[in-house]
Design a protein around this nucleic acid. Structure first.
Lengths: 220, 220
DNA sequence: AGCGCTATTGGACTAAGGTCCAATACTGTT
DNA sequence: AACAGTATTGGACCTTAGTCCAATAGCGCT
């Protein structure tokens, strides 16, 4: 009836998920042991390709991060990072590397990696890095969720109502809006009142701020 | 002109300024030669302390960046970066290092360095890094300047006027504002009109958006 | 055809905002 | 003491905005 599957995955206490991508099975197993015993849920991937297949199913409603090997056959770590950066919300990345170079480190960090560690990795380095990554993911998710909720509210407006709102938040008078839309001022008032009611705001000031947060651009 | 074809300092207005901090005089001279011939204005500093003394006089109105040696006696590069991070607008930092370690690289990048290069540095690495740094500085400066202009506009309001504005952008009616301030509604109208005139806005919507940009927090 | 949603308009009325006018009082400066 | 700036208030008047009420028309769906 209404819109599609609206998941209100209330981030109660979902266990954090660490996604490990490394072509060396010994490394995977070792990391899994370490991170599992530290209380994280862990998934292992032997290649970037396998990881990319799984990623769409990894729900964003729980804290996640990626522990990513730098050198791998086919897609290497930096290339995978590129792929991820192309999409909207991807988990924070912690790079691991056997013989890391400074240029590679710099590039990874410039592209947004949250940390870059050398193998063999010590847990006193890895665990804090994981926590920072998860913390960032939580924060990003909360922010993204807030925006999404706003978008959902605005999508409950009819086309006309939204149109009116866009003029109103641009500072136009009802009369001007009516003229621009070729309708009567009365109608504008109705749409405006409906919009205000649907969005649950109590003043024009609130409406303007809400629209700004939701990224609704003014018209006129 | 002939040897640095693609990376001349193409600052349309003010010449860009590169601040070089290195305890090795040979490095300083070499960088000065390279960057001067590339069209940048250059200042040299033999220590972090000397640099910090000079910094307050470096005007933010021109594009600037810092080329910073990692290892130095007394304050080293990372410590200087810490010092700088404490203050409001500091120039983007490009690190140089003789024998860099990956942890140091990561730390520098996490703290906001724009690049991290190894000595001896090649100009095909350094010049693009400088341009990125200057570009970022220009952008930050424009943003900072915009905020400052807004703050200046708002500081032209009287205390009372600003107070009224803070209530108004919170969505309060004139009547409510009058009650909260213990003055009459008429007076609120006057202050409000004055504020709107001083700020050069034509509607409440604009006022709200302007105040939000300037970081004016609502009241009530 | 009937139902529900959306868009549209009108009248009458109240509340609020904006704009003219003019006035008093306190402050700090010259 | 005279002056400029700010804060304050009032009245009269007009323009907007918001709120009741009620109504018509198109659209897709059952």
């Amino acid at each position: 009836m209404s819109n599609s599957a609206s998941f209100d995955a209330k981030t109660t206490d979902v266990p954090a998920l660490v996604l490990i991508v490394d072509d060396d099975i010994a490394v995977r197993k070792s990391l899994q042991r370490l991170l599992s015993s530290a209380g994280y849920e862990v998934e292992l991937f032997a290649s970037a390709g396998a990881f990319l297949q799984r990623l769409p199913a990894v729900h964003a409603g729980r804290p996640r991060c990626i522990v990513l090997d730098m050198v791998m056959p086919e897609l290497d770590g930096l290339q995978l990072q590129d792929q991820l950066a192309a999409q909207a919300h991807y988990p924070p990345i912690i790079f691991l590397t056997g013989q890391g170079s400074i240029p590679a480190t710099v590039q990874a960090m410039q592209q947004g990696a949250i940390d870059f560690l050398e193998k063999p990795v010590d847990e006193t380095d890895l665990l804090p890095a994981i926590e920072r990554a998860l913390s960032q993911d939580r924060q990003h998710y909360r922010h993204w969720q807030e925006i999404e909720n706003l978008r959902r509210q605005f999508s409950s407006l009819s086309e006309r109502e939204l149109e009116v709102v866009r003029y109103v938040i641009a500072g136009q008078r009802n009369k001007q809006v009516a003229y621009q839309l070729g309708i009567s001022e009365k109608t504008v008032k109705v749409h405006r009142a409906r919009a205000v009611e649907k969005l649950g705001v109590k003043s024009l000031a609130e409406l303007v701020q809400l629209a700004a947060k939701a990224g609704i651009s003014p018209l006129g």
